[in-house]
Design a protein around this nucleic acid. Sequence first.
DNA 1: GTGGTCTAGACCACA
DNA 2: GTGGTCTAGACCACT
Lengths: 128, 128, 128, 128
Amino acid sequence: MKYESSKPIYLQVMDSLKQRMVTGDLRPGDQLPSVRLLAIEYDINPNTAARVYKELELEGICFTKRGEGTFVTEDPDLIRSLKEQTAKSIVKKFIKEMTGLGYDKFEIIQKIQKEGDENDSIENGKTD
Amino acid sequence: MKYESSKPIYLQVMDSLKQRMVTGDLRPGDQLPSVRLLAIEYDINPNTAARVYKELELEGICFTKRGEGTFVTEDPDLIRSLKEQTAKSIVKKFIKEMTGLGYDKFEIIQKIQKEGDENDSIENGKTD
Amino acid sequence: MKYESSKPIYLQVMDSLKQRMVTGDLRPGDQLPSVRLLAIEYDINPNTAARVYKELELEGICFTKRGEGTFVTEDPDLIRSLKEQTAKSIVKKFIKEMTGLGYDKFEIIQKIQKEGDENDSIENGKTD
Amino acid sequence: MKYESSKPIYLQVMDSLKQRMVTGDLRPGDQLPSVRLLAIEYDINPNTAARVYKELELEGICFTKRGEGTFVTEDPDLIRSLKEQTAKSIVKKFIKEMTGLGYDKFEIIQKIQKEGDENDSIENGKTD
DNA sequence: GTGGTCTAGACCACA
DNA sequence: GTGGTCTAGACCACT
């Protein structure tokens, strides 16, 4: 995995894990890789890996059993709402930014259709 | 003006100024407030205000006449392309995030229409 | 039984057993459940169950007869002093914490009476 | 300052700072020592010091201005309720432990008076 | 100057 | 084995 320097690595790893939950790659109750293994898999320092799980736990997406490991929350609703909530806030922020630039809803949708077309064949497969 | 802690203040102020240019509140050739005044208007540190103009200059959107002050670029095309460029990168990033969550183009547009409806009477253009 | 994550499970189980001795639910000389059974009863890892007995033995509250099992100490004085000792250390720690917050003895007692009133019908002795 | 090994240092430092807020040594809006200075004052690693402020911020007791420093929350109610809340939870836990041992309210208060008397002359002055 | 992030490596308690 | 804590020191962005 390659990291953008503009965003903290731990956030990028968190996003990656969230994405894997949302897409069903990781399911409620699943055990997550150990801190050390995550560090290897994502090529980060174990401390950074630990931070990832700590932050996810704060968000209620993970929980930890002492000495056993870290697990995806067992509440499937939480995962579902995670997707919805994330999407909603992204859309909201996007609309706010675009209207701030002076675009109306019609123009915004037009732009999305246009942009979508350009990249449809190129960047579709998520590399992860 | 209230600042998000997630984004550097100088970027937020830059965005605000850009928005004012794009929407016509600030026009090509207009003189911008002095560093000191900008600092007061936006309630930021003078160092931060100076940085704002420095970065805007780097982007070619402003220029400084020594002893006179800082001005909006006199090239109207630059402002126009600024709007287009900004919009394009926002749209691109947005689409990338949404597809990462597993939404396809159709769903994305659907969500925008839905979200757009809720906020139809927009809280637009606060010049602070 | 539900465990707080702030405190090691083995300590919580130890406290539970001690409480049962102090309240007379377990009496001097009584046989304690086997490690395996304890693990099941308390829904803990067998290693953790073993540790519980090991630590209790270190404190002299239990003893083990090889091949027979683990038993509560036969010395009734020990149980009695266990109660006194535990209480004393709890009280000591409590007073230290409260005085640290700036409360004097009078206020502390006031608070206990007030709090005690609210919970007068106690949720006592769940043996699980 | 001397640290107990049973409790994480960062929690002990947090408690110390909270105590200073509750007792009025640190007042709402006050700037807290910088991460580096705190590290020196409390003889801890700067990372640990940073963690202290981060956790306090999570609890809403502090806030951070980027590049400026960390400050005590400006809401005096929050400090007041901090004291009350802390005290209440300590008292509650204490009562629960004591009733678990089989003491009733009267005995508990008796013990506090007795214990208070013993240590009144010895351990009264809070060090730090 | 400030706080935030990251790496490296160690030690400990817990299950 | 697991996660949690701590130290050491570095680098960065922000004000």
